[in-house]
């Protein structure tokens, strides 16, 4: 799957192990893998990966996010957010691209589209620019 976030172990400079619990603010440049429990906030230009046993209760701002575990919190990604089959997300997503694989669970608000994930992206929502009907909506024949 070339068009997905790579989660090879050697790519992660920071790893929160399966038996670790971390509370606080994490700011760094590289990639983080969460196998344990994390509570707080994460800010990175790299990627965040929450593995199958990982639990995250955090506000995340990152380059990309891949989820296999449980997340309670809002995600903002410059590029891509991936919810894999075992992922459970409760929170809002703001990203340029979103992938939700069958089996994943996601409840929250979502803003996805080109330029939406980038920091400092315009607050206007592209979908607001959707051409409104010129005439008042008329009931179509179909129902």
């Amino acid at each position: 799957m070339a068009d997905s976030i790579s989660t090879k172990p050697e790519e992660f400079t920071t790893v929160i192990g399966p038996d670790a619990q971390f509370k606080g603010e994490l700011t760094f440049q590289g990639a983080v893998r969460v196998d344990g429990q994390f509570e707080g906030s994460i800010q990175t230009s790299g990627k965040v990966f929450v593995s199958k046993g990982g639990k995250l209760k955090a506000e995340v701002k990152s380059g990309s996010v891949a989820l296999e575990g449980q997340v309670d919190g809002n995600l903002t990604a410059d590029d891509r957010v991936e919810l894999r089959a075992t992922a459970q997300l409760r929170g809002d997503v703001r990203a340029a691209k979103l992938l939700v694989v069958e089996g994943a669970s996601f409840v929250g608000r979502c803003e996805v589209g080109p330029n939406l994930g980038a920091p400092g992206a315009p607050a206007t929502r592209p979908a607001d620019g959707v051409a409104r009907p010129a005439a008042p909506p008329v009931a179509a024949a179909r129902h």
Binding site: R80, L99, V100, V107, C110, E111, G113, L116
Partner: peptide
Amino acid sequence: LRGASLSLEPGATFVGDVAIGPEQ
């Protein structure tokens, strides 16, 4: 959006609330 699964192709624009999952 409420559904069992969601696929958003890169380039698509979507704004709104989401409830996705087999239990939804």
